[in-house]
Design a binder for these strands. Structure first.
Lengths: 326, 326
DNA sequence: GCGTACAACTTATGCGCAAAAGTAACTGTG
DNA sequence: CACAGTTACTTTTGCGCATAAGTTGTACGC
């Protein structure tokens, strides 16, 4: 029984091994409870069967990243897909792109999924790393030359939401976010577009800035709540912020949707469990993870994929918007 | 420049290499942007520098597991600790223990952290896997012979919470959970003990069963809410269930804490953002992950560790309990 | 000035695997 | 019956690393 014969049996190379010996080998493998050594296989094949999932966060959002149910659902989707294709997932959470890079090359990771990475960082990575990369939720035309993006039609989703608010009679609507880049910018743009199409003006003061860091968040919420009476509705860039805002409003005796309407974006458990239940834009986070992983897997097997995949959103009308049409 | 010399420089084996050649080698390494091939190192050393984090869920709780902010925080804690010690994390989410086992042995994972595994499964794993295992939140005396457990003083936490409820005048208190095993049992026991110490009776009908599966959860909530008037307070086994319950109560016009008091356990963002803010038992989930990883790392470097580590809990009194002392 | 000790290297070996190259026995064909 | 082709194997090689074993040169003591 030579190693090659055994190897052939393991890899199911029929025609090379007689049925007789095949059975013998299989029995033997079972008897000794054989498990292949992946390190050795990797060394010989120069492939690792590992997909790296790198989550990166701006330092000030790191805490939120980890807390967000979004992340665990995403991880779950990726892991499931990858595993059923015989790959393994190495998870990497970091604030430091270089560290991620080093990690990826030491392990000779076969493919990369990046999330939360700034667009230029993604490009930087792709320049060094010569294997397939799929990014989630990036917004960089430049980047699309280097990697595939799996995202959402954020602009359209925000457009629909803003249009809905306007249809309910809202004219003074604020937009709440912590930055104006990437996804947040796309959502803001959709919002602005809806205003414009309805002949409403967007003033820069209608942008309410929330600070993600725990030391600053209270102060920023205080400022925002003080200005609440200026608006009839606040459109938040995420459910997390919508619910955070509603808690702050509630603490100050401002009722939702009685005094002011609030909407979110994402549709996660936070808004679903809130009462009144949050009106929001639904996205299928698990599908995002699954799609990203699937796309990467396809690329690994040499199948061409579009370099931009946009998943649809869906308006979910619940109870945080008041109809104020006279 | 021989491989050994280079290897020695990389591993900082001073005294074996002259300062001169050391510098030369280092310059060279930088120039060619050398990255070690971990597969080769693993093969040579028979160690992988990988820590496996296996999350297992009963089929009916799988969805919840993934959604729960608990999980991502735990993962974050483990990942951070492991990485700063030069290890890597391979994440494994599955309903199937055998699959986890196969994975672990193919990769020759150096150590294992198990979460959400039933006690007997943990033991089964430890019988095959001859390397260090740290479990999180198991409750099996038998298991402690095989692995280290990092957990909480659940019983004490629940005892304090129940005592607090009693001090606020509550005598008819229900306990809500989806099962009576492991952690949930410990919390239930703490609850029962507090009742007993205060000369209150626990009837088996005071246990309210919630069903975790999304198809059944509504029905079980309906039953529970119908019985709400029997109690002045409901102690929930987790914040997730407490908030879920409060949403259901709110939908039926039952006010918290006006009509009934509700408390949770865990202290996660769900309860913190809820209004009224949830009175609960705090646990430091990140610390749990960090402690588990630290303990495993210690064991890997041959340091003895206690086989049972219990992290403290802390009562967090917020706004969901009414003082009903006459 | 011979042996010992040690510093600073180099060479050789094996980890477990996949695949290339080699071998031996058997089969069919002209 | 000789030779090509095929089947069912075995032997060999090399992936990149750490380390054991071997080599060389130099300093020092007596």
């Amino acid at each position: 029984m030579s190693t090659t014969t055994v190897s052939n049996v393991i890899h199911g190379k029929a025609g090379e091994v007689s049925e007789d010996t095949k059975k013998k080998v299989e029995e033997f493998l079972k008897k000794v409870d054989y498990v292949p050594n992946i390190s050795a296989r990797n060394l010989a094949q120069n492939e690792s069967k590992i997909i790296g999932l790198a989550l990166k966060a701006r330092a000030d959002k790191y805490e939120n990243l980890i807390m967000d149910p979004f992340v665990s659902v995403l991880i779950g989707g990726v892991e499931e897909t990858i595993r059923s294709a015989g790959y393994f997932m190495m998870l990497y959470i970091s604030k430091d792109t270089d560290e991620i890079m080093r990690h990826v090359s030491t392990w000779n990771v076969d493919g990369l999924i990046l999330f939360g990475m700034l667009d230029d960082d993604g490009i930087r990575v792709s320049e060094k790393y010569k294997k397939p990369i799929v990014c989630i939720d990036t917004y960089s035309l430049e980047g699309l030359k280097h990697f595939t993006n799996v995202g959402l039609d954020d602009e359209q989703g925000a457009y629909e939401m803003a249009s809905y608010l306007i249809s309910q009679g809202h004219k003074r609507i604020a937009f709440l976010s912590d930055n104006t880049k990437g996804v947040d910018l796309a959502r803001l743009n959709g919002f602005k577009k809806a205003l414009k199409d309805n002949k409403l003006k967007f003033k820069s003061t209608d942008f309410l800035q929330i600070r993600p860091r725990s030391e600053e968040i209270e102060e920023s919420l205080e400022k925002i709540c003080q200005r609440a009476s200026e608006f009839t509705a606040i459109m938040c860039v995420s459910d997390l912020y919508a619910v955070t805002l509603m808690s702050a409003l509630s603490d100050r005796g401002i009722s939702v949707p009685g005094d002011i309407s609030v909407v979110g974006f994402d549709d996660n458990m936070l808004g679903q469990l809130h009462r009144p239940a949050l009106t929001t834009v639904h996205q299928d986070v698990k599908a995002k993870g699954v799609t990203a992983a699937d796309t990467l897997l396809k690329q690994l097997s040499g199948v061409k994929t579009p370099n931009q995949i946009k998943l649809p959103t869906r308006l979910v009308i619940r109870d945080t918007v008041k109809n104020i049409n006279s």
